[in-house]
Design a protein around this nucleic acid. Structure first.
Lengths: 262, 262
DNA sequence: CAGTGGTCTAGACCACTGC
DNA sequence: CAGTGGTCTAGACCACTGT
């Protein structure tokens, strides 16, 4: 068994008020922050840390758990514990739904990812009619049924976002919006062609830890929150024509907005 | 020792592929979701769960740890484990910096909290000159020194937000901006009085788990992420006149934005 | 196969809370 | 004081990874 690299980790003080596993977590955190363990690199194994600090294995595992829930490291069964690499971040600008971005044959996600040098994918496509939840119903003006469009977005094979669009059925039924591929410019282009000229979007942004289902769907490491974004699109008559409910891996996104100083 | 309320929790299957502690976590999560354990109420104690499921204490603690990191429950030493109450949420609207909100004697935070029936406080006030970090410097057009205004916001005694404003020193020195209380309308009103008419704000929104320091400052339970917001204010000449770096308890906020459909 | 992390046990002592 | 969660030990067996 390889020893812990010398000079990187010190000793713990069992008589300290600070719990031993916290002291170990502190030392590992500081070593990571100082770059002693680089992004993506492997930490000493549990057995090595047990040996180095002279504590039991559960104590070491406890300290690893602390850093995992801080999002700093992630454990891989049979391989080791690694410093979490920071993935490339997708920047969502506040003009991302501007009409001028809607004239391509491909979706904004594909175009943008290509430009950034990433490999984009969209899967889990599902389009169906549903009875809306109370919340969605309220946002859309209480339609009896809605069309739901579900899809998952991936970058370089990694799922980063899961989105569901809801539209009142009378706007969507029988149009390309009800088909898996709504055509160039996406559903917003189809809505405008049908005479629903878009006026503005409202977005609500929250952050929280993922549910187990979301963690699975986005393959999230522990310690990675999600951004929950709910966007409502309004036409020029003030009618809500679409609600998009999106859950994003928080480490893959930064949202950018511009606010008026009016 | 009181038994676990009958019918709420079942048994575990030790031969299942699913780890026992995950099965216990699943059962507790479902009971919470179904309202069997209400918001703020106490879960069965570890000893009771050990008795009920016939497993060792570490297994029970492990399952509790799962729900803690999901943000569903929080443990209080000597008291018990409780279903996390959802705190009142502060809604930040995209027009919150509009000039019409700037004519009161009190800060926007105080006015808004009063209106919502909460008891607002601001503490940890610190105003001093500093050498800016590389990031802040770049956003402000590379000033040699900046004025930093630090403060923490609390609602009903709970810290919800920690914010630092940075301004180029030449704009701030010798004005009320450099005083702890910048006067009615806040620093934006002072900037405009000095001829720096504000044009717009850029905001960048990220979410992540808190650092240990942030968790302490905001008294965050485990399983609560933070929203990290960086706002830059620009005057009508395109100059960045302020950067505000804010860390917010994610369970206390929802950010609302309006986007143009242009 | 050896090395890794994942799960689980059965105990021990401690610190905090509320009565 | 009894009851609670917090920390720690010293083992055991398992599942996954790479050679």
């Amino acid at each position: 068994m390889a020893p812990v690299p010398s000079g990187v980790l010190g000793a713990v003080d069992p008589t300290s008020d600070r719990a031993v596993f916290r002291q170990i977590a502190d030392q590992l955190r500081e070593a990571i922050d100082r770059g002693r363990f680089k992004e993506g690199s492997k930490l000493p194994s549990e057995a090595e840390l047990v040996e180095h600090f002279g504590v039991s294995r559960m104590t070491v595992r406890n300290s690893i758990g602390v850093l995992q829930s801080e999002g700093l490291i992630s454990a891989e069964h049979g391989k080791g514990v690694f410093v979490r690499p920071r993935p490339p971040v997708r920047r969502l600008a506040s003009d991302r739904f501007a009409r001028r971005h809607r004239d391509q044959g491909k979706s904004a996600f594909i175009v943008e990812a290509d430009a950034a040098g990433s490999r984009p994918e969209v899967d889990s496509l599902e389009v169906k009619e549903e009875k809306p939840s109370r919340d969605i119903s309220a946002r859309l003006g209480s339609p009896r049924k809605v069309l739901a469009r579900r899809r998952r977005y991936l970058l370089d094979g990694r799922p980063v976002e899961f989105a569901v669009s809801y539209l009142p059925l009378d706007l969507a039924r029988g149009t390309r919006i009800a088909e898996p591929n709504p055509g160039p410019g996406g559903i917003y282009a189809r809505l405008e062609e049908a005479g629903h000229r878009l006026d503005h979007f409202d977005e609500e942004v929250r952050a929280r830890m993922p549910s187990p289902g979301e963690a699975k769907m986005l393959r999230l490491a522990s310690g990675v929150p999600v951004i929950h974004l709910v966007r409502t699109a309004y036409d020029t008559e003030g009618r809500a024509v679409e609600v998009c409910d999106t859950v994003m891996a928080a480490d893959a996104y930064v949202l950018a907005y511009q606010l008026p100083a009016t």
